[in-house]
Amino acid sequence: MSDDRTHVQEFFTARAAGWDAKFAGDGPAYAAAVAALELCPGDRVLDAGCGTGRALPPLRAAVGPSGTVLGADLTPAMLRAAVRAGRDLDGRLLLADVRALPLRGASLDAVFAAGLVSHLGDPSGGLRELARAVRPGGRLALFHPVGRAALAVRQGRLLTPDDLRAEPNLRPLLAGSGWRMTSYADEDGRFLALAVRER
């Protein structure tokens, strides 16, 4: 396992047990971001880097009983927390690196990814792998329940121009990875970038 994956696992393993309690008020923001994906009943959707599975219930509600909901995460402790919360009832959980998904090409209609990009050691490679798994015309939502400035304050750091999620950086990153950004919102109450899989 590469160093960046080990670091991510260690970071989230230490926080898994208290994760949901710490961010208990994020549910409405998750639901609104899932709604922005405009999923249809029967769609196949992946929550990439699903953590404790907070997006799985709104994803299941959006695709209905005929749809497929998958949650993939690298950290076993986060997936165990998802099971304890009963979110495995809304989607199938996979212990997997989103940079090497155990999925056929073009097998998904959409990907939801909360807080994922900044934890990828190779963001371009991760986004390319998500593009591989999504059909042409499929959709991607990169989400965080607070905007970049609010997150920087929360983490006690300065917001710098080289921030990966800044629009001038994210747009070409997506474009070079098989995605076309269709909308971008960076507000105190949410970060949400939507993209479409290029044909």
Score class of each variant (00 low, 15 high):
L95D: 11
L59D: 01
V63R: 01
L101E: 09
L79E: 08
P58W: 04
L103Y: 08
V134C: 12
L39Y: 02
T68Q: 15
R99C: 12
R54N: 12
L59P: 03
T68R: 14
L108V: 09
A149T: 14
L108W: 03
G147I: 13
T75N: 05
R54W: 00
L74V: 10
A77P: 05
R157M: 08
L59Y: 04
A133Y: 01
A35L: 07
R139S: 10
V117Y: 03
R135H: 09
R92D: 12
A48P: 12
A152L: 00
G53D: 08
G91I: 09
Q155N: 14
Q155L: 15
P76D: 09
L95C: 11
L79A: 13
G138V: 06
V111D: 01
Q155F: 07
L93V: 09
C50D: 13
V153Q: 10
V146E: 09
E129G: 05
L120C: 08
L46Q: 08
V69L: 05
A62D: 05
G126A: 06
G53P: 04
A72Y: 03
L79Q: 14
P145V: 06
L56K: 07
R92P: 02
A131Y: 00
R132V: 05
A152H: 03
A35R: 15
P161V: 07
V111N: 01
R135K: 15
S66I: 00
L70Y: 09
P102M: 14
L70A: 08
A133L: 08
L46F: 05
D122W: 01
A48Y: 07
R80M: 05
S107F: 04
L130R: 01
L46V: 13
S66R: 12
L39E: 00
L93A: 13
E129Q: 07
C40D: 12
G126N: 02
L140Q: 02
G86W: 09
A77S: 12
L93Y: 10
G137D: 14
H144L: 12
G115W: 04
G86I: 13
R87L: 06
M78W: 03
L151R: 08
L120I: 13
Q155P: 00
A152E: 00
S66V: 01
R157H: 08
C50V: 12
A62S: 10
C50A: 14
A77R: 11
S118C: 02
L70T: 03
H144M: 03
D88L: 07
A48K: 09
P161Y: 10
L116Y: 05
A85I: 03
G71T: 09
P136D: 03
D88E: 15
P58K: 07
L37H: 00
P57Q: 11
G49V: 07
V83S: 05
M78K: 08
D109N: 12
L120M: 04
A149V: 10
